[in-house]
């Protein structure tokens, strides 16, 4: 059986700067994979390549056995992407943003799904308000609603906790878990506490290469911190 995500020897260069080097990675259905690593080590680049918003310089990315470059349209509809910004237009209201993305995803019954998600992220009463008036936490929850709009089988999160307090972070993860517990989630983070709570498998990147890849097991926050410093040879 093929993996949900499979990266075969992917590399990415920006000019003379090689960010990812011959990276091999497989992710199976239902896994929640945390990618940690120092700044500039290629975490966000990897997420962008998996989401097909950026092309790798070399190598292959397969989603459910299909190669991304051949079937990008169909595969993108299986992927939800959220970064530290929610990809939301601040001059539009919460509902207008979701309606716009619903059209982009050709949703069959957008009104129902939008109402359901706004309820889930606790923004139903603010649906007509412009995103510019939202707090950081509210924007990020709406960004999550946008990423979940088309019920993706794979959710890619690039440092989604940036600017969120612990309460906001807990809420974000509880929404992700309750929306679809079987969803495959790949996320990057600098937050050891939320990483330990949310992941089932841990990957540490260093200088564009995977230097640690193992199930989380019974690793605690302190244990993860010690492991991270040991593997990367520095502080996060």
């Amino acid at each position: 059986m093929s993996h949900v995500i499979e990266c075969q020897k992917i590399s990415k260069r920006f000019g003379g700067n090689q960010v990812l080097k011959d990276l091999d990675l497989t992710v199976d259905a239902g896994e929640s994979v945390a990618i940690l690593g120092p700044n500039g080590t290629g975490k966000s680049t990897l997420i962008r390549i998996l989401a097909s918003v950026m092309r790798q310089s070399e190598g292959k990315v397969l989603i459910n056995g299909s190669e991304m470059k051949d079937e990008a349209f169909a595969l993108r509809s299986q992927i939800g992407l959220l970064s530290h910004t929610g990809y939301l237009y601040t001059s539009l209201s919460a509902e207008e943003n979701l309606k716009f993305y619903a059209e982009m995803y050709s949703l069959k019954d957008p009104e129902k799904r939008i109402a359901e998600l706004l309820e889930k992220v606790g923004l139903r009463t603010r649906r007509f308000d412009r995103v510019a008036t939202f707090s950081r936490g509210m924007s990020q929850r709406l960004g999550l609603a946008r990423a979940l709009l088309h019920s993706p089988k794979i959710l890619l999160l690039d440092e989604p906790e940036t600017g969120l307090d612990q309460e906001g972070l807990d809420l974000l993860w509880s929404i992700i878990k309750t929306d679809d517990p079987d969803r495959t989630v790949v996320f990057t983070s600098h937050n050891f506490k939320s990483t330990v709570q949310a992941c089932s498998r841990l990957i540490i990147l260093k200088k564009g290469k995977i230097v640690y890849d193992a199930p989380k097991g019974d690793l605690t926050e302190d244990g993860l911190q010690a492991l991270y410093h040991d593997v990367t040879g520095g502080k996060s």
């Binding site: 962008r48 989401a51 097909s52 918003v53 349209f73 169909a74 595969l75 993108r76 509809s77 992927i79 992407l81 970064s83 910004t85 990809y87 939301l88 237009y89 601040t90 001059s91 993305y101 982009m104 995803y105 050709s106 946008r146």
Partner: peptide, 18 residues
């Protein structure tokens, strides 16, 4: 500019459209 200021270009690129 809306895509630049609100960082929405990646959001557009992640949609299943050409």
């Amino acid at each position: 500019i809306p895509e630049k200021e609100d960082n929405c270009m990646e959001g557009l690129l992640s949609c299943p459209v050409g």
